[in-house]
Design a protein around this nucleic acid. Structure first.
Length: 317
DNA sequence: TATGCGTGGCA
DNA sequence: TTGCCAAGCAT
């Protein structure tokens, strides 16, 4: 009896070989062309995309856009750049001023980190935002995504920019799933690297274009495939839009959490010019144990500075 | 790797 | 009304 080996039953590998599920080299090139062409006519005119924004403007926008919608960032961004047009301008002021100017964007530790990043840029890079991915990554508040985004958008460098929009677009168009995994996987990074155009300028446009496609068309809740430049090759659509089958995507609760208490406490500090008495802080939350824990957390994070017994302020140093 | 960290709009 | 979602980072 003859045993047919599996390898004998399959046709010769196409050249070059590729992982299963992804487009061919020709398909990838078409993908680049179609998405980038769409971007050239559909891209929003956002202030940080204009030439006058510069690398600092791009960096400020990236900090503000971490987990925060564009519409809420726009006014704060404009005020920020008008007040602090260069990193050294921000670094020259107390960190508390950054926290105050951050307003209600949320996650105010980002303001602190942006201030610290401005100081590091001023000290270590002569006041110029670095164009090198590694140097960017070493800055406070700059992770893998932000480093790649600044290098790509501000300096035209070739990097895979893998944010939540891009991950969703790739999950649908290439992998055929409604949503990407909860946390970024090695497989996603490999895919992003493989899809990255070889040419630097094309890669930079591709990074912005795939993000924009996810933000405007291939949205989380209601994708508009009729407006999608690659709908005809989308694996998820071709598979009949199979629903997400993994564990439910847990949204973070907010009401009653320490996070909410921290927000209320910091709002008092932000909206007060100068030091604040304990009594003013105690007024925003009745439960004393949680209130104290939240306040201690803010102090530990450097968002609040005790100045005397029972007196607090935004950080001066 | 899972969790904590703000805020507000929308379905 | 409640839950989901919005260009993540640090630990």
């Amino acid at each position: 009896m003859t045993v047919i080996r599996a390898s004998a039953a399959v046709p010769a590998q196409p050249s070059p070989a590729r992982p299963p599920g992804g487009p061919s080299a020709a398909g990838t090139a078409a993908l680049h062309r179609e998405v980038n062409a769409w971007f050239s006519v559909a891209a929003r005119d956002l202030p940080w995309r204009r030439p006058e924004a510069g690398a600092w403007g791009v960096m400020v926008s990236e900090f503000m856009l971490q987990q925060t919608p564009v519409a809420r960032v726009l006014p704060v961004y404009a005020q920020w750049l008008a007040r602090w047009p260069r990193p050294a301008d921000l670094a020259a002021e107390p960190p508390g001023e950054a926290v105050r100017a951050w307003g209600r964007l949320g996650y105010p530790r980002r303001a602190l980190r942006l201030h610290a990043a401005a100081a590091a840029i001023t000290e270590r890079h002569g006041g110029e935002v670095p164009d090198d991915h590694e140097a960017l990554l070493a800055l406070p508040g700059v992770g893998e995504y932000t480093a790649a985004a600044v290098a790509s958008f501000a300096h035209g460098r070739r990097h895979a920019v893998l944010d939540t929009n891009v991950r969703r677009v790739f999950a649908r168009v290439v992998t055929g799933e409604q949503y990407p995994p909860t946390a970024t996987t090695a497989a996603e990074r490999r895919l992003a690297a493989r899809l990255l155009p070889a040419d630097e300028a094309t890669a930079a446009t591709w990074a912005a274009a795939t993000m924009e496609l996810g933000a405007l068309v291939c949205t989380a809740r209601s994708p508009e495939c009729g407006r999608c430049p690659v709908a005809d090759r989308c694996a998820w659509r071709l598979a009949g839009f199979p629903a997400h089958d993994g564990p439910p995507r847990r949204g973070q609760s907010y009401a009653g959490t320490d996070r909410q208490v921290r927000g209320k406490l910091l709002a008092v500090l932000r909206d007060t010019d100068g030091p604040v008495e304990r009594a003013a802080l105690e007024a925003v939350w009745d439960e004393p144990v949680q209130r104290e824990r939240a306040l201690d957390g803010l102090v530990a994070d450097g968002l609040v500075e005790p100045v005397a017994q029972g007196v607090y302020r935004l950080p001066m140093s």
